[in-house]
Nucleic acid binder design. Sequence first.
DNA 1: TTGAAAGCGCTAACAA
DNA 2: TTGTTAGCGCTTTCAA
Lengths: 339, 339
Amino acid sequence: MKAKNITAQDVADLAGVSRAAVSRTFSNNGSVAEATRQKVLEAAKKLGYQVNILAQSLNRQRSDLVGLVTTTTRDPFRSLLLEHLIKQIQQAGFQALVTEVESAEDLEQTLQKFIQFRVSGVIITSGRPPAEFAKECVRCEIPVVVINRETDLSNVDVVKSDNSAGAELAAKTLLAANCKRLAYLNVRNDTYSSTARGAAFIKAIAEDIVDNTVSFEQIVAEYPRYEGGVKVARQVFENGVKYDGIFCANDLLACGFIDGARSAFNYRAPDDFCIIGFDDIPVANFESYGLTTIRQDTSAIAKQALALLRQRAVQSDRSQVIQNINVELVKRRSVAKRN
Amino acid sequence: MKAKNITAQDVADLAGVSRAAVSRTFSNNGSVAEATRQKVLEAAKKLGYQVNILAQSLNRQRSDLVGLVTTTTRDPFRSLLLEHLIKQIQQAGFQALVTEVESAEDLEQTLQKFIQFRVSGVIITSGRPPAEFAKECVRCEIPVVVINRETDLSNVDVVKSDNSAGAELAAKTLLAANCKRLAYLNVRNDTYSSTARGAAFIKAIAEDIVDNTVSFEQIVAEYPRYEGGVKVARQVFENGVKYDGIFCANDLLACGFIDGARSAFNYRAPDDFCIIGFDDIPVANFESYGLTTIRQDTSAIAKQALALLRQRAVQSDRSQVIQNINVELVKRRSVAKRN
DNA sequence: TTGAAAGCGCTAACAA
DNA sequence: TTGTTAGCGCTTTCAA
C-alpha cells in the first residue's frame, strides 16, 4: 500500500481553492490574493506538498537545469573552476547537471542527454562540441558556452583566460629577471590553451631572440601533470642547467619540474633557474614551491559563463562572443633577478 | 516563427505507426516488431527526435537523476571523491545533479529541490540531513546515502572509510618507528571523521601511554587545511621539536605542518619527526613531501554508495547499513626508524 | 504485435 | 483575483 503522491489538486482541495491558485502561489506567477496565498501555503505545509518540477518543466518546455561537462575533476585547476561554476549556476537559480566525459563519444552522449532534459544551458569545459549538437541547440534554443577552448561554431560563446596577456607577463618577468636561456615547457598532447600560451610567449620574446640576446627552446614533456614535470626535468637537466628561465603550460607541470630538478640534481629555483607556471592552483603557494605564476580568475570565468548563457537565452541569434578574462601575475620565490 | 518541438507523435506519423510504438522502441519496453522498430528509428533520425525525459520521468514518477551534495569541491580529497561519485552515477545509468552547500540551510533547500525533481537517490558528502528530510524521503521512497559522516536516521545508509583501522595503522607504524612523543594533529572545528581518527589513535596507543613508554598530546590547529598546518607547526616547535611522531587528521594539514616546521626551524621529516597523514591526496606523493599516509579508497566508497542506493531502491524498508571501507597504509619517506 | 485512451502533475490563456 | 480548460510529451494498461 503505497502512499499517493501529493499533487497541487490535493492542496487545492484542502485549501478550498482551484488548482490554478496553487500553481500561482508556488510559481509567484500571476496574481493571487494574500488570503488565498496563505490558505494554500498552509494546506501545502500540512500535506507536505512539493512542486513536481518534472511536470512544471514539461509544461514550460524548459527545465531549470544547466548541463556542465567536465573531465578529471580531481585536477586542482578544474576542481577550482568547477566549484565556481556550480555555485554560479545555483546563484542564477539553476541546478547543475554534471557529467564527466572521457572521450568525444562520451561528450556526444552527454550532450544528447542534456537536450533530452531540455536544459536551460550547457557549459563545456572539456572536449569540442560536435557541429551537429550545435545545430540541435539552435533548434532547441539552448545556449552553449565553452570555457578555455576554441570552437568553430558561431552560435557558441567562449569564455577564456587571456592566454596571450599571461604569456606576455611571463616573458616580461623572465626577461626582467635577466634570464637568457628561455624555454616553454608543454605536454606532448597539448590543449588549446597551452598551445596559445606557448605561441604568445614566443611572440613576446621574438625581438630578443632576433637580437640574439636570449635563446629559446620548447621543452616537451611526454607525460602530463606533476609526474610529467618531474620526468622531463630529469632528462633536460641531465647535463647541467640548460635553461635559466622556464615558462610552464600549467602549475602542476611546473611543480613537478621543480621537484624533479631538485631531487635529481639539487638544482633549485630560483638559484639555478627561474620558473613560472600558469593557473595559480593552491599548491603553487605551498612553501615547498613558492611558484610565481599567472593566475586565472576562475570566479570571473564562471560569472561570465553564466552571464553569456543568460544573454543568449534572451537573444538566441546574437553573434558569437569571445570573452577574454584578465589574468594576473602572482610573484613568488621561483623567480629572482640573475646576474 | 519558432520551430515546433518534435514529439513522439511526429515520429509516429512519419513512420506510419502509433505513438505507443515509438515509446516502446525508445524505452525497449514491451514488444515491438523489428520492422516497426526500424521504421521508427529511421523516422526519428530523419526528424532529429529526442525523447523528452521530463515527460518520461513525469510519467514514471521518477527521474533518472541522483542528487549529490558536496562542499568546497576544490579540496583535493573531495574532488577525488566527487569524480568517482559522478562516474559511478553515470555508470549506473543516472545523471548527477550536483549542489554545493555551505550551510545547513543550503542543505535543506537543496534536498527539497531534489525531492521536487523526484530524484532516484541522494548522496550526501557534507552536512547532516535533517530528520524531516529523511521522513519525506521515506514517503517518496528516495534512497539516501551519507559518506564519511554519521546520521541518526535509521533509513539512511552510511559509507565511510574505516577510520579506526586507519588510526591503528598509523599508531602501529609510529610505534614501530620507535617514536616516543606522539601527537594527534586536528583542526579546531573538526568533523566526524577526524574525531573518530583521533579517538582510535589514542585507543591504539593507550597501553603504551599507561606503561609510560610513550607520551601523547593533542595538537589543535586554529585554521584548517595547509595553512593551518603551517601555522600550528610554527607555534608548536617554537621551543624545539616537541613530538617525534605525529598523526594528522588529513594530508593537507600534514603537508602544511611539514612545510611550517621546515621553513621556520629547518626541522624535517623524517629526520626530526615522523609524520603520517590521512587520505592520500596526490600532493602527498609529491617529492617535496613524500608523506606516509592512510589511503582512503575513494573508488570503493563511490561504488558502495551506488550499490546501497540501488539496494534500497528495491527494498526501501530494509534496515540501515553502515559500510566500512578498507583503508591502506601508504609508506613514504615521512616515517623512518628512530634511535 | 499493435493502437486507443487514460492519465502523470503542472501551467497559462481565457473568461468570469 | 479566481476558476475552467486545454494542453506539455510520454507511458502503459487494455483490447484487438
